[in-house]
Every structure is written in structure tokens, then in C-alpha cells.
Design a protein around this nucleic acid. Structure first.
Length: 701
RNA sequence: GGGCUCGUAGCUCAGUUGGUUAGAGCGUUGCAUUGACAUUGCAAAGGUCAGAAGUUCGACUCUUCUCGGGCCCACCA
């Protein structure tokens, strides 16, 4: 055997043979019980990062079950990642001096499609590099025709069930990216803002309101104060003449007004603030839109029409000051909603949107976990799951981008009614009119990925594998993805007439891994420039070592800092393993000597078998770290340090057989964790034709 | 403001239903070894388990509080 394990050459070669032999397909064990894992769809346009490397846990499970004789399906897939991808593409357009407004919808879609197609495949190659035993023949894409059909079908069913509604609602709108965001997607940034104190004249005297958004004053429809506030006694219903306008607005009383903030008087702008929106509804106030989707002031703003928000703010303040309405201004710290892409402020704007009523969907999803039909590991994450679903809000599923699945809804130009189909263009509206226009919006990406287990298995003719055995992903998308899959998954099956709740759920076990941070414990991000590519580490340390380092000493669901010492340790472990193999190969000559059965050898073989049971038991409980640690400890400090040292001087046919048998057991146990080196050793010491990957798991009784 | 999570050796982390002497890797120190080992083996030092109180025969583990880090949700006129 070579002096060292040359991972670069060998890993690639081995992966290729495995794939060519069809070992990644469930057909390998046609009679086995089905076992399935769906890889969380990777961004079709993205690159591999450490979140993907953690899917090694899925590979471990897939490999173990394959060895245990299960018909094992681990299905890969890619996500079109709507907002993210369109954002990246638009950035590219901007660099070329163009914008998406220069193109028609279809043109833009085709351009992005082409762009994505050109970039696709990169991540698949990298997942192969890590040794992931994915069934590539069944790879799915969220924009595959048959997946889109399912998404349309689900939407239509929800629509027909009255769970979909159209509403003018305040949405988080980025006027720069021209899209709305769900509440979940908005991030808040701590900023220094100016708080302006503006005098609103009453019949006698005035009320001073404090605001950070003076430019929205043209949309004010009331001033609210707390009824308990003595400063504003007996003012309810009194009219105020709104400065810079000819309008009059009332003073209203509401408990929700914070007496401590500013002057205790709030200007109410229902069309441009979420709280004011609620308040406006409660007090039946008008909604006056003063900011358009282009980020400019509307004609409601009078002389300020056409100005951008920031400009308008400055001008309004200037004018108010001139006219003596500005009392004072101060600097405060507040957190401002910003676009997670471009970091510009999010504008709450009124817009027609599609919403899904979530409460009826959330209930069975909660029940599925409560009753234990779906198990979340680690269990502590159940709390987050319940908290999300029990307080769920209706889901705004429409997005104002082209890159995605266009909503199959047509609006009648005559009666204004909507027709929703399974994707086909309707001939005419219920009213008989043929003047139908399709909604330009696309679905939230999570709406399609939320149907992923069903969509993938249905379209690959693999419903035998439904529900999915294990849904493994990072805990950070428990709500965004896992909870939505649970809700939509159950709904789809129920609509199919599946009554048995065990058959309704999309997955049985949820397994959540922690995040991999940089060596200093900071989150890896492109903007910080601290991103490490796992492939580079695989080149340097070997894929096996990267895999092992990620599993060893990292409890499930806990974040870990990328640790170079740990990678080094894993590399040394691989080296140790290689040298054990070399030792065994070297001693082959001595193995011809006839000897007697030694009780010690038998005891050691028993110990190896005991280790198998332990490893199985750990893996059944998703305690990957314990399994890895036990293997490390046993192989190195028991098998190598003690047993080999003992047997070294007394090699004969019997002891050699024991040595080899033990090693085979240990290799099999280690294979799911370090598939390449174990396979290579197996082929060198046992069989050039056989494969460790498809050998049987050692603990079967 | 609410929730979650973490704080254990110099560093990165384990510690399973509370139970002798709290573990690993790397690092440090000493000894041995050129051996199957791009070294390895043997050994050692290093911890008031963030702090305080409580429950208990017994707390790293359970409860409460405090301090510090991270994440999520809500709010922010």
C-alpha cells in the first residue's frame, strides 16, 4: 500500500464508480423497506457553503440505512430562489448599465433562466466532492414543469376552499428592488433618526406631534392620543387643520398610544404605517396614499409631488419651519425596517396581494407534532415550532418579481373577479367576459419549496417513500420551511382523500443541525468576507476529514465554530486508519503460521460487536457526535493502541483472522462518516470487486 | 418587551434520566520511539463547570435571579 492516503485522486475515482454502479439508487435494495431523505433544495444559482456541508448528517443516515438493507432514497434538488436570484441578476444588469425595467416580463424571465442554467451544476459537483450518496437520476428543480403543476394545483385547491383571499394590505415594499417582502424577511437596523416636533393647529392652540416621517403627513387622517393623558383632556373629536394642506383631521383617543414617547400625540397615517393601519381600521379612518411604488410622492402631497421620500422630507421640514410649524427636532435611535438585499428602508405601502389563511392549516401541523407523529430533534426546537404556528399570521404569498412561478390567476377587466386555474389560461370569466388579464406576480419561493416532499416524490414516481423518513436541515429555517412543509404537506394529502394522519404528514422525523461559524464564532457572511468554502478544505484535508470534523464534538442543533485543529485531528485520524490497514497488509506473510485460538482475540471481537450496537443506537437517536467520538476513541485508543500492540508479537492464522475481522467491522461502522478512505482500504485488503458501501451493517443479529 | 440558546481546561467543544476522581481534540511539559504511523506511544500539568440563591442525601445537570455573548419574534409615531 502507498505510504499515505492520496485523497485527491482516490476520492474522485471512488465516487465515480459508486455512481456508475448505481449504488445511490433505492433499486440497490429492491426488497428493502423504504427509507427516504430529501435534500433541502439548494439554490440553483448558488455556491456551496458550510450549511450544505452539514448535510453530511443526511449522508450518514442514508449510508447506514443502505447498509442495513433499506431501499434508500436520498433525493437532491435545486430551488429557483426567486428574490435572491433575481436580485443577483439585477445587480449584474445594473453593472451593464441596464435595469429590469428595460425588459418585458417574459424577456426578463428568459434572461434569468438562461443565466441560472449557465450557473447550474456547480453545486451538484461540489456535493459529489463531499461524497454525498444522492440519487442524481431523480434530481428535481422547483421550476420543473410537473412540480409547477403541483404548485398550481395546490393553490387552486386552497382558492376553492376559500383559504385564499385578495386584500389590500400594507406590505413591506422596497422601492429600490420593486418588490414586497413578508414580515419574516424584513430586517431591522438600529439607526439614528431625526424626531421632528410639529405643531398641528386646533381651533384654539395646537397639538404637537412627534414624528420621524414628516413627509407622510399628507396621508394623516387623525391625531391619536391616550385617553388617560391629562394633557389632552376633552379633545376627542376636535378638528385639526393639517398644515400644508386644506384638510381637517380629528383627534382620536386610543389606549395603544404611548404617553411617554414624544409628546404623547401621534399622527395617524393608515396607508404608510402598520400600527396606524390597524388604528385606522379600528377608528374607520381613510387611507390616503402619499408615497408611490416608485418611491416618489403622489399628487396627495401637493407641491411635493414627484419628489423622492428623502427629498420630500427635507423640503417638508424646510417649509414647516418657514411657516412656524416646526417646534423642534431631536436625534433618536430607532430601528428601521430595511430591505435585506439592498439595505434601503422598507416602505409600508398598500398593495393588492394574495393571502393564504393560515390558521386552518396550522392546526393539523401543530397536532402532528403534539401527537408525536412528527418528531423534532433536538426536541427543544418544538417550542419554536409551536410558538410560530400558534401565533401564525396569514401568509402573503405573492411577490412582485418575475423569477418564480407565476400565479395562475386571471382578473376580469369587466367584473373585476378573479379566476384561478391549475395553470391553463381560462377562456372567459364567470361573467362571460373574455377580457382576462393574468396576475403578473409570482409565488413566494417558500410556497413551492413548502410542497417539496410531495412534489419531488410524486413527480419521480416514488410515493412509496412518502412520508419522508427524515427531514434534515438547519434550525434557522424551521419556521420558513419545515413548518410550512408540515402545513402544506398535510393539506395536500388531505385533499387527496388520505384520511390516515400517518400518511398525511410529509415527514416523520425532523432533524435540525446547527450552523457553522467562522473560527472566531462569528457568522460567515459574504459582506464580512469570512466565508470559507468547504471544498477548499476538502482539497486540503480530504473530504473524509472535513466530514468527520463537522460531526465530531458537535451536538445536534448546536452551532459550531469552524475548527482547524479539529480538521487536523480528523486528518490524523484518517492517517491512523490508513496505517492500521498498512500494518495489516504487511503482516499478511506471518498469517500463514498455524496457531491456537486465543481467548483474548475472541474478547476483542466481542468488543467490536458491542461497539456496533452502540453506534447503531446513537445513530437511531441522531447522536452523530457520540457515534463519531466512540469510533474515534475505540479505533485509535483501543484497537490500535492496545489490541494491535498486543497482537503484534503473536501473529498467526487465528489472531490474524481476528485482527482482520475486527477491522472490517470497524471500517463498516466508520464508512458512513468517512466513506472514501474506508472504501479504499476495503478494496485493498479484501476485495477489488466488492464494495464496502454496499456491504451489510455489522450489528444485524 | 417576549422567546430560545450558549457561557465547562490556554483555544474549539462534548458531558445522554441529577450519582465515585468532570472528558476529548489541539496547545503546553516530561520521557520513550524511527516503529504500521507526513510521526506515534506513555505520562503529566491545567477546571471554585460565568456568578448568587434554592430544591436534594447528592447539582455541570433541576428551579429562580444576576452578568455576559448569539439568534429569533414583536415594537419603535
Amino acid at each position: 500500500m502507498d505510504k499515505v492516503f492520496n485523497h485527491k485522486e482516490i476520492e474522485e475515482k471512488i465516487y465515480k464508480t459508486w455512481e456508475e454502479k448505481g449504488f445511490f439508487k433505492p433499486e440497490l435494495n429492491p426488497k428493502g423497506k423504504p427509507y427516504s431523505i430529501i435534500l433541502p433544495p439548494t439554490n440553483a444559482n448558488g455556491a456551496l457553503h458550510f450549511g450544505h456541508a452539514m448535510y453530511v448528517l443526511e449522508d450518514i443516515l442514508a449510508r447506514v440505512h443502505r447498509m442495513k438493507g433499506f431501499s434508500t432514497l436520498w433525493l437532491p434538488g435545486t430551488d429557483h430562489a426567486g428574490i435572491e436570484t433575481q436580485f443577483v441578476f439585477e445587480k449584474k444588469l445594473r453593472e451593464e448599465g441596464k435595469s429590469r425595467l428595460d425588459f418585458k416580463r417574459d424577456e426578463l424571465f428568459e434572461m434569468i433562466k438562461k443565466y441560472v442554467d449557465e450557473n447550474r451544476g456547480g453545486i451538484e459537483k461540489q456535493l459529489r466532492r463531499l461524497g454525498f450518496s444522492l440519487d442524481w437520476s431523480r434530481e428535481k428543480y422547483t421550476l420543473d414543469k410537473n412540480v409547477v403543476e403541483i404548485v398550481y394545483d395546490t393553490f387552486k385547491k386552497l382558492f376553492d376552499d376559500g383559504l385564499v383571499y385578495r386584500a389590500k394590505r400594507l406590505v413591506n415594499y422596497c422601492t429600490f428592488d420593486g418588490t414586497s417582502f413578508s414580515d419574516l424577511e424584513v430586517i431591522y437596523e438600529e439607526k439614528e433618526s431625526k424626531l421632528y416636533y410639529i405643531k398641528y393647529p386646533l381651533e384654539k392652540g395646537f397639538i404637537t406631534v412627534a414624528t420621524t416621517r414628516p413627509e407622510t403627513m399628507f396621508g394623516d387622517t387623525a391625531v391619536a392620543v391616550n385617553p388617560k393623558d391629562p394633557r389632552y383632556k376633552d379633545l376627542e373629536g376636535k378638528m385639526i387643520s393639517l398644515p400644508l394642506t386644506t384638510r381637517e383631521i380629528p383627534v382620536i383617543y386610543d389606549e395603544s398610544v404611548n404617553v411617554e414617547f414624544g409628546t404623547g400625540a401621534v399622527k395617524v397615517t393608515p396607508a404608510h404605517d402598520p400600527n396606524d393601519y390597524e388604528l385606522g381600521k379600528k377608528h374607520s379612518l381613510d387611507q390616503i396614499t402619499v408615497i408611490g411604488f416608485d418611491g416618489k410622492m403622489t399628487n396627495e402631497a401637493g407641491e411635493f409631488e414627484g419628489l423622492y421620500i428623502k427629498q420630500a422630507r427635507a423640503k417638508v421640514i424646510e417649509k414647516l419651519n418657514e411657516l412656524g410649524f416646526l417646534e423642534k427636532e431631536e436625534t433618536i435611535k430607532n430601528s428601521v425596517p430595511v430591505c435585506y438585499k439592498c439595505k434601503n428602508p422598507i416602505e409600508p405601502l398598500l398593495m393588492d396581494q394574495w393571502f393564504i389563511k393560515m390558521e386552518p392549516l396550522a392546526k393539523p401541523a401543530i397536532e402532528a407534532v403534539r401527537s408525536g407523529k412528527i418528531k423534532i430533534n433536538p426536541k427543544s426546537f418544538e417550542k419554536i415550532y409551536f410558538q410560530f404556528l400558534e401565533n401564525i399570521r396569514d401568509w402573503n404569498v405573492s411577490r412582485q418579481i418575475v423569477w418564480g412561478i407565476q400565479i395562475p390567476a386571471w382578473k376580469c377587466n369587466e367584473c373585476n373577479e378573479w379566476t384561478v386555474t391549475k395553470g391553463e389560461t381560462p377562456q372567459k370569466c364567470k361573467c362571460g367576459s373574455e377580457k382576462l388579464e393574468r396576475d403578473q406576480d409570482t409565488f413566494d419561493t417558500w410556497f413551492s419549496s413548502g410542497q417539496w416532499p410531495y412534489a419531488t416524490l410524486k413527480t419521480t414516481d416514488c410515493m412509496d417513500f412518502y412520508p419522508v423518513s427524515v427531514m434534515e436541515t438547519g434550525y434557522d429555517i424551521l419556521r420558513w420551511w419545515v413548518a410550512r412543509m408540515a402545513m402544506l404537506g398535510i393539506y395536500i394529502r388531505e385533499k387527496e382523500g388520505i384520511k390516515d394522519t400517518e400518511e398525511q404528514i410529509p415527514f416523520k422525523d425532523v432533524v435540525l443541525h446547527g450552523l457553522v461559524n467562522d473560527p472566531y464564532g462569528k457568522k460567515m457572511s459574504k459582506s464580512k468576507g469570512n466565508v470559507v468554502n468547504p471544498i477548499e478544505l476538502a482539497d486540503q484535508y480530504g473530504a473524509d476529514s472535513v466530514r468527520f470534523a463537522l460531526v465530531y464534538g458537535a451536538a445536534l442543533g448546536n452551532d459550531q465554530a469552524l475548527s482547524y485543529p479539529k480538521l487536523e485531528a480528523a486528518r490524523k485520524f484518517a492517517n491512523k486508519l490508513w496505517n492500521i490497514a498498512r500494518f495489516i497488509e504487511m503482516k499478511q506473510e506471518e498469517a500463514g503460521k498455524v496457531g491456537e485460538i486465543n481467548k483474548k482475540d475472541e474478547e476483542w471481537l466481542m468488543e467490536a460487536k458491542k461497539v456496533s450496537k452502540e453506534i447503531s443506537s446513537y445513530l437511531n437517536k441522531y447522536q452523530f457526535n457520540y457515534a463519531a467520538e466512540k469510533l474515534y476513541e475505540h479505533i485509535w485508543h483501543r484497537f490500535a493502541d492496545v489490541y494491535i500492540e498486543d497482537v503484534k508479537g503473536r501473529i498467526d492464522d487465528k489472531s490474524y483472522e481476528s485482527l482482520k475481522n475486527q477491522f472490517l467491522i470497524l471500517l463498516k461502522l466508520l464508512h458512513p462518516f468517512m466513506p472514501f478512505i474506508t472504501e479504499e482500504i476495503y478494496q485493498r485488503l479484501w476485495s477489488k470487486e466488492g464494495y464496502l458501501m454496499v456491504s451489510n451493517w455489522p450489528d444485524e443479529v
